[in-house]
Amino acid sequence: MRKQLIIGLFVGVALAQIVTPLSMITRRESVLQTGEQFKFKVAPVDPYDAFRGRYVALRVMENKVVVASGTKLDFGQRVFAHIAVDEQGFAKLSGVSTVRPQGLSYLEATVVNPGRGGGTQAMLKLPFDRYYMEEKKAPLAERIYQRHARRGKEDAYLTVRVKDGFAVIEQLYVGGKRIEDAVRDAKE
């Protein structure tokens, strides 16, 4: 009896252990399939994560937004950043609100610097800060970007799919090429 109970409980725990990663996957796959695509300009650097491997850390260029008068933000607050597209086709932040906006594309973000009230600029942390790569390739990817940056071409960008405020990274591009291809070309 006791053994059966333990086995029953174990099966429950095992299910939770499967469902958790499974739901992580399905949520992101659904955004990748049906979400709206945006291009964010980024600057990569290269750190290391002991568990999850090497990644290129990304600094999103477009992270400042003018706060509408009447809106007050706090440090660390979760907000909704409205996304618009500029003339060159890159995403920019067009506004920020504390409730989910209707009929707009938006992202969930965190306030890093709330600014000084209405009319001033606030700085947000967008929900993409890393792009995982093979361990040998991540530092190389960073060097490729630096080379581009020195020539005044800060042309790294990230394609991101967004749905209902939830963002999933699709691909990192440097100099118009997928970063994986750029690294492969550089090696040859």
Binding site: T20, M24, F51, G53, Y55, P127, Y131, Y132, V168
Partner: peptide, 11 residues
Amino acid sequence: IALISQTYNIH
């Protein structure tokens, strides 16, 4: 969980 975080570049 780590591999999934890696695959989808979870921030």
